[in-house]
């Protein structure tokens, strides 16, 4: 048992002129995560606190928030890693809807724009699967693991400066489909990916990959997209006869 001081950003657009911090002293079990502490506040101290959560196993992606200034899933931020006061804020770079709840319309719209679905290269076989070897699966599997938690957007300095930037998760997901042996839709996605606000906006800080709770490595995906786009450019302009 440990008493934890939580400092939580509160903002209700109906009643607050601007955001402010509220402190809660919470009796916590040693093995708790920040989400457990918030739930304890909600149940016993302050039913007006709003935040999103569901699975408590780092797979639904709901509970992304800033914990002591770093983007974290609250269900995987262990109290034992935070000895002092714990400051909890909504994810950086997103408008605040209320308290720890952010507006994520921007990401949701960008995800749709990159066409994150199979655009089949060949007609699907009758009553059978496309063959895909374990090696072919491995080429894109890592990029399928994105849970859309948006910690990478909160960590990305470029997204903070240029909100039109497509951003790490959307690019990584587009790349996931491009690398799938069943897919032939790269050209259709390229317009978004190779645009100024696409992969080229990234200055390769790599913060996205550092904070990713699923080890997707969006920074790696973005660099691969850049290389492939460069190859495209050379093929189109210097060696047009090689273009398919």
């Amino acid at each position: 048992m440990r008493q934890v001081e939580l400092e939580v950003l509160r903002y209700n657009p109906e009643t607050d002129r601007e955001p402010h911090f509220q402190r809660y002293a919470v009796d916590c079990q040693e093995e708790w995560v920040v989400l457990d502490a918030l739930n304890h506040v909600k149940e016993t101290l302050d039913p007006t606190l709003s935040y999103r959560w569901s699975c408590h196993m780092a797979v639904c992606g709901s509970c992304g928030m800033m914990v002591n200034g770093e983007p974290k899933l609250a269900c995987k931020a262990f109290l034992r890693d935070y000895p002092g006061v714990i400051r909890v804020e909504p994810l950086r770079h997103f408008p605040v809807e209320r308290d720890l709840v952010t507006v994520i319309d921007d990401f949701v719209a960008k995800l749709a724009r990159v066409k994150p679905y199979l655009i089949p290269k060949d007609k699907a076989p009758e009553a059978a699967e496309f063959r895909q070897t374990p090696a072919q699966l491995k080429r894109y599997k890592q990029f399928t693991l994105c849970i859309n938690c948006m910690l990478c957007y909160a960590a990305c300095p470029e997204y903070g400066l240029i909100p039109k930037y497509l951003g790490p998760a959307a690019i990584a997901l587009a790349h996931r489909w491009n690398r799938d042996s069943r897919d032939g839709g790269r050209d259709a996605r390229q317009e978004e990916l190779a645009a100024t606000e696409g992969a080229w906006e990234c200055s390769f800080v790599g913060a996205c990959s550092e904070v990713c709770p699923e080890h997707v490595d969006p920074a790696g995906a973005i660099q691969q997209v850049k290389i492939e786009s460069t190859v495209d450019w050379y093929q189109a302009h210097l060696m047009p006869w090689t273009k398919k």
Partner: peptide, 22 residues
Amino acid sequence: PTELLQLEHWGCPWSREADGSV
């Protein structure tokens, strides 16, 4: 089986055997 194959045709990353079958 039809529904699971449909998901495969939509790109679900099912784990695979060495020969590429599901």
